[in-house]
Amino acid sequence: MSSVPIDTESGPQVVLELLYRLRVRDAMTRGVATAAPGDTLRSVQYLMRDRNITGVPVLDGNRLVGIVSIGDIIAAFDEGRIGESAEGSMNATVISLEEDMPLSFAVTYFDRYKYGRFPVLDRDGRLVGIITASDIVRNLLVALNAEVAKLERTLSADPDLAPRTGDSRDRGASGSLEIQGNAASGGRTAAVELRFAVTPLDFSRSGEASSKFKRALAASGFEPAFVRRVAVASYELEMNQVIHSAGGIMAMRISPDHVEISADDEGPGIADLDAAMREGFSTATEWVRSLGFGAGMGLPNVKRVSDEFAIESEVGKGTKVRALLRRGGA
């Protein structure tokens, strides 16, 4: 299979947003045909023939223990092992996806691992589906059709409207940096404002904007210790938006003696703010934790490095965080 790159630099916003908005569960096939470890390869082959499929997950009770591909069946025929058990020929190092991962993960996995299909597990590790490249293509086309139809309606309603993406006009990918004011003048009297839009679950570019922001601060001559404090606050707030929000805007106002960061998102809001501020509390999913996030230290870290910290949140509306960091403070 040729490489399927996700172009986060110059790809059309609408396609990128679909890849992050659609989840694996939206594209996977449910009602998966499975085999038991003791089933013969011949019975697996019949299953493939009858269901017109090319891969069968092997379950030991509820636990996924392997997968038999059509390649394994061909090899078994070739070597006269078709009467033997599935257990002996299956691939036991199964790479699986989780159902609440964004579809971009599935695209990346197909690119990285070169398998024809991936089993999909739920939060408790139970097999709930299977996903193939054609599942992705089919569902992406359906979603693209809907987006383009929406775009066409917008265009016909307003002929003067430039042909940009429909409802994502005001939102760049994570890291699209917009500089207001004159950052390069070196004039330390006026405040400079940097803003960027954050895309939910876009782990391929997350943190990049905070890194750029950190470099801008360092280039302006702020001390490394201060730059580090600001970068920690900015990165934690950015990752919170990536992991938990439906998208948001990060803004930083740089003044000669302090930096103010604001992080405003579009929801879903935090139900229990006291819990969210407590170290160790997190609502992140298992797979987000597997990337090293969701330690429940994000907001406490921001508060620790800030001189002033305020958070307000409303369920169903969103969360606003303000953090002020003074040079030589905290």
């Binding site: 391929s204 990049e208 890194s211 580090r228 990165y235 990337l291």
Partner: peptide, 13 residues
């Protein structure tokens, strides 16, 4: 943790 976010964090620190 072998992914690009680790690099971002290392850069910050």
């Amino acid at each position: 943790q072998a992914h690009r976010n680790t690099v971002a964090v290392a850069g910050i620190v």
